[in-house]
């Protein structure tokens, strides 16, 4: 299989290239190349990573079976549609798009063309999450009553703080991972979202913090802290944590909690060195396998859309200072 990576606007592109390379070593990828809407960045990254750089995205699409799209959020839509027209399967970075209409159009285009569309959600591949999901689904924790979750991080800069390219700040960036995980965990869908959204950490037009409260169709409720509240001195990039309150017991998952503390001799902040499974690699492998087997990947376009709905409902809620039903987005 020949695979391309389109755009290095999102830092996750580097992790995906590492994962693709590891898979190439193990066989299954015949060709790996990159393109970028910013030719200068593309050429530089190609040199750094020692990968072929194809300046015109159309030429890259002609050469590959599948493409990983890691551009700014607002560019996902046009790039994905271009890939679909070229008959290329696509794994799109999260959030899948910045509007419901864009996401729906992407889903429809890939469906019509008989192509695979995936959303880049690595967290479902976490072994700890899978164990938690089985505990919930098997009924061992009893009925799920409540969930308290976080997906916090550092302020990433770049396109993330250019609203026309990102579609929003911390809330659109950090809502979708957990929004997706809770659907998988409970098998339920979102009914209602309330959000407090803040600008108090950086005092900019983009939101830097959010506390979401969500009602699910199984009668449970959840909160999510999606803030960019980890300072640059924090020992790691952030977290994904899920606390489950069940009728028969509680569970707590800290998806990136497997780490070693590192304290440098120099007066620099300590850091956490992770040792958990490489979720990017598991996700990319699943997507490529899905393409080969012509089956849906773990995270489809629909999964991407359902998660996006929660972020968009949160913005609508904060604008109107009231709880918003998901149905109101349509």
């Amino acid at each position: 299989m020949r695979v391309g990576v389109w755009s290095f606007a999102h830092l996750h592109a580097y992790g995906y290239v590492r994962a693709l390379r590891a898979l190439r070593v193990r066989g299954g990828i015949d060709w790996l190349g990159i393109t970028d809407e910013d030719p200068e960045r593309g050429a530089r990254v190609a040199r750094e990573l020692d990968l072929p750089f194809v300046e015109d995205p159309a030429n890259l699409l002609d050469r590959v079976d599948a493409v990983v799209i890691t551009s700014a959020n607002a560019d996902h839509h046009d790039m994905a549609l271009q890939a679909a027209r070229a008959g290329v399967h696509a794994l799109v970075e999260k959030p899948i798009a910045t509007t419901v209409a864009d996401a729906q159009e992407m889903i429809d285009a890939f469906d019509r063309a008989g192509l695979i569309l995936g959303t880049a959600f690595p967290c479902p591949f976490s072994p700890a999450f899978e164990e938690l999901r089985q505990l919930v689904r098997s009924g061992e924790l009893g009925r799920v009553l409540a969930l308290r979750t976080t997906n916090r991080g550092s302020m990433p800069g770049g396109f993330f703080i250019q609203l026309e390219r990102s579609g929003g700040g911390a809330v659109i960036d950090h809502t979708v991972h957990v929004a997706d995980l809770l659907r998988r965990l409970t098998g339920a869908e979102y009914v209602r979202v309330y959000a407090e959204i803040g600008h108090g950490l950086f005092h900019q037009e983009w939101d830097d913090s959010g506390f979401l409260t969500m009602d699910l169709s199984n009668g449970s409720f959840a909160t999510l802290d999606c803030s960019w509240s980890r300072p640059k001195s924090f020992p790691t990039w952030g977290d994904v944590t899920l606390r489950v309150i069940g009728e028969k017991g509680n569970a707590y998952a800290d998806l990136f909690g497997q780490h070693i503390h590192y304290y440098p001799a120099k007066p620099e902040p300590p850091s956490w060195q992770p040792w958990g499974s490489n979720l990017d690699e598991l996700m990319i492998e699943d997507f490529l396998q899905a393409v080969r087997e012509k089956r849906p990947p773990r995270s489809t376009g629909i999964d991407g859309l359902r998660a996006l709905e929660v972020a968009l409902a949160a913005y609508a809620s904060a604008r109107q200072s009231r709880a918003v039903e998901i149905a109101e987005l349509y």
Binding site: L145, A146, R148, E196, T213, I245, E247
Partner: peptide, 8 residues
């Protein structure tokens, strides 16, 4: 059993 999550 009782549990509450509050935002303000």
């Amino acid at each position: 059993l009782d549990y509450g999550l509050i935002t303000a």
